[in-house]
């Protein structure tokens, strides 16, 4: 039996349902039927996303510690005040900002350049693409571990390469043990791992630009330089911005790679906010304090991402 075009979802559902249930369903409006289908998803969303968020906000106003059997007290905004006036927290914010800024900047520059080169047709194009994307297929824990060996001052390949080009003694510096080098050590590894991701998205953007636009530009005698700045960059920009958004959100949450590489040290120079938050919540067990910390980070990421998405939409509209 085929559906008649006029059949409503309720009719179709009723036909495929036992008669007793069908009679009940026929009495429901389309809107009610739609709600029945959507309700499980909404319930799941409320249970695993919204409820924990509300509960976290609630805990952020308490002195609750999940490892204690003592009475919980509401302490107002004291946790927020302590966090925002804690110089150590601001140092982790600075470390996170440094990591975010440099990883994204370097990855965008290298990623876009690689995409631009790969987009040109040459022999072995596909093979090179595969080789370049290999790092992002690895587990961050594995990457962190083997880069720890590469950075080892006595046997690490990285130090020998630097030594080869600079003449410095390989064991005279420690990428993950020195305050001035450790923040760059994590930037280098993240760039090595995730530049291919930016490249792939940029490549998709470049391949979406129709050839006839370049042909028209050539007819108008536009130089390759001018074509690049007036066609390639503007048309690939929404893709690039999307890649930046993804990497920005990911790197704000960065945890595994850095824990494997430096553990947040030396001192606290590579202790990013996510590492610091985990220590507060699950090592020191300051649950209320950590909840307030999480709320502050959530508002920060959500606010920045909203502003960025608006900017992205404006670029797409152009």
């Amino acid at each position: 039996m085929t559906d008649t075009p006029a059949a409503t979802p309720a009719d179709r559902l009723a036909r495929a349902t036992p008669p007793r249930v069908a009679r009940k369903i026929r009495g429901l409006s389309d809107r009610a039927i739609a709600w029945i289908f959507v309700a499980p998803t909404i319930f799941l969303l409320l249970a695993v996303n919204i409820f924990p968020l509300i509960w976290t906000i609630n805990l952020s106003f308490t002195n609750f510690r999940a490892n204690r059997n003592r009475e919980v007290e509401y302490i107002g905004f004291r946790n927020y005040e302590r966090i925002l006036t804690d110089s150590d927290i601001w140092l982790t914010m600075q470390a996170t900002a440094h990591f975010l800024f440099w990883t994204i900047l370097i990855q965008v520059l290298i990623g876009f350049t690689l995409a631009w080169l790969i987009n040109r047709k040459f022999r072995g194009n596909d093979l090179w693409t595969t080789i370049i994307v290999l790092p992002m297929m690895l587990s961050p824990a594995v990457v962190g571990n083997f880069w720890t060996f590469l950075y080892q001052p006595q046997i690490g390949l990285f130090n020998y390469v630097v030594s080869f080009f600079t003449g410095a003694d390989p064991s005279s510096f420690s990428m993950i043990g020195q305050v001035n080098l450790a923040p760059w050590a994590i930037v280098i590894v993240d760039t090595w791992m995730w530049t291919p991701f930016i490249m792939l998205i940029c490549l998709a953007g470049l391949r979406s630009i129709p050839d006839y636009i370049y042909e028209a530009a050539e007819v108008d005698r536009a130089s390759p330089w001018r074509q690049f700045w007036t066609i390639t960059v503007p048309m690939a920009l929404p893709f690039l911005m999307l890649a930046v958004l993804f990497r920005g959100i990911e790197n704000f949450k960065m945890f595994d790679l850095v824990v494997q590489l430096t553990g947040g040290g030396p001192g606290s120079v590579t202790e990013l906010t996510s590492i610091n938050l985990k220590r507060e919540a699950f090592e020191k067990w300051r649950t209320g304090y950590a909840s307030a910390y999480a709320v502050i980070l959530f508002v920060t990421v959500f606010g920045l991402a909203s502003i960025y998405v608006k900017a992205l939409n404006k670029v797409k509209e152009r």
């Binding site: 150590d88 043990g177 305050v179 030396p266 001192g267 606290s268 120079v269 220590r279 020191k284 067990w285």
Partner: peptide, 23 residues
Amino acid sequence: EPAYAELLLAMQDRVHTYVIAGQ
């Protein structure tokens, strides 16, 4: 103390920052 983990992590941070990071 029951708060040993918190006391320990604070000492880890302060000592590492001075001894290893030299700050």
